[in-house]
């Protein structure tokens, strides 16, 4: 399956991936309205990390061996046998945070707006996830 890989040598920590990820998962899907008006504010599912000059943006790896799926006590996380996407059903999530301890990449977060998790869904309906599409430096690669 295709995943989003960070190419850290090209990342300049501009955070456009975070901005557009949050917008994509907002109510309006409009960047200005999402950030200026929406309540609750939108939640990003990709995370820019920085250490000195090094930076990278990372999101769900949609693991071949998904520890979060194995750990999920609610059956809210499942691995799609055809597409390989690690799917998330928020209506089943009980916000127990077990998947956060299981995820070796630290890319599942508590949704700040409700007692449930948030994670990358690879932007269903788009050919290319929005983080990859908006990155000005090709520091995020779908392959």
């Amino acid at each position: 399956m295709k995943r989003v890989y960070p190419a850290e040598e090209f990342c300049v920590a501009c955070r456009l991936c975070e901005v557009y990820c949050a917008t994509e998962h907002s109510q309006s899907r409009d960047v200005i309205r999402a950030f200026k008006e929406e309540q609750p504010p939108p939640t990003k599912r990709i995370f820019l990390q920085q250490e000195g000059a090094a930076s990278l943006a990372i999101n769900c790896r949609h693991c071949d061996e998904p520890r979060c799926v194995w750990a999920c006590v609610a059956g809210a996380l499942t691995k799609d046998p055809v597409t390989g996407v690690v799917n998330y059903q928020p209506e089943k999530c009980i916000g127990c945070w077990t998947c956060l301890v299981a995820c070796p990449y630290g890319v599942i977060v508590r949704d700040p707006n409700r007692p449930k998790i948030a994670k990358c869904d690879l932007c269903p309906g788009r050919d290319v996830p929005v983080c990859v599409a908006v990155c000005p430096n090709r520091a995020l690669v779908l392959s």
Binding site: R3, Y5, P6, E8, Q49, Q50, E51, A54, S55, L56, I58, R61, H62, C63, D64, E65, P66, R67, P104, Y105, G106
Partner: peptide, 17 residues
């Protein structure tokens, strides 16, 4: 992840879970 030595974090990311 960014706080880990670069070879380690890159190996983790490359292995596709």
């Amino acid at each position: 992840l960014v706080k880990l030595p670069r070879p380690l974090r890159q190996a983790w990311i490359r292995e596709d879970g």
